[in-house]
Design a binder for these strands. Sequence first.
DNA 1: AATATTGTTCAGCA
DNA 2: GTGCTGAACAATAT
Length: 275
Amino acid sequence: MTGAAPDDDRKIRMPELPEVEIYKRYVDRHALNQKIVSISVHDARILSAVTGRGLHKSLSGSRFLETFRHGKHLFVRSSRPVWLHLHFGMSGDLAYYKSPAATPRFARVIFHFAGEGHLAYEDMRLFGRVGLSRDPQKTIRERRLGVDPLDPDFREKDFVELMKKRRGAIKALLMRQDLIAGMGNLYVDEALFQAGILPRRNVQTLSDKQLEKLFTRARAILTSSIRRKSQGRGNPPGSLIRHRAQGDECPRCRGMIERDVVAGRTTYYCHDHQG
DNA sequence: AATATTGTTCAGCA
DNA sequence: GTGCTGAACAATAT
């Protein structure tokens, strides 16, 4: 989907909330209101609770009408009473193209539109899922997804209340999709970096003010990432995402970036200004 | 050729 | 119930 990616994003393109929001806009721009003439499943392992035949029967002949994102999940409403449900795992992506010669190498499911358009769901590592949902809100409940951090009804004080009920490392909590849906390893590290909080800090040792700041920073990072990506730009100078390497200089102080495993994931942080 | 990587889920343990 | 760790999944880069 992404054409010429900025240098700093070449290796880092995990589908977290901002990336999925970009996928949503990509579908909005390219794939709505066209008749789906057929669907080809190149690898059925990507399908969730549906067969290739079932997908074809449900959606062929219909059109995609609108999209809805919750956390890292994308729902696409069909002109029939069913939604396409996409999760992008670690390497999922979308590609809309005209010539069959442009079919992506790792295309797993392809929607063929009347005319000459094709929308491919591609996923090299097959950790993503393609399925159907009769009711996205119901699917969100069943999957036990927490609130979307960009939901305007979810305020700083709600975040503080949510976190104060918990114990354990703040990073582990921010990663949990059943509490807050949408943040992954990279954006959690970035938010903690910008809020000056070490990933291992126990949530119970953080003040209300620190938690508020953390959420404010997290939300600002997510929205600015969406804005920058939609403009074809990469991550801003001074962001940790551009310095995810042990021994790099901290982009905001004289410290060094350190690497560790927190909440089971490789974690980068600056021990000088994160406390 | 072995290792690290990455999101999600789940089993096992304190 | 809660939190933590490690495994499993797939495929690639180093």
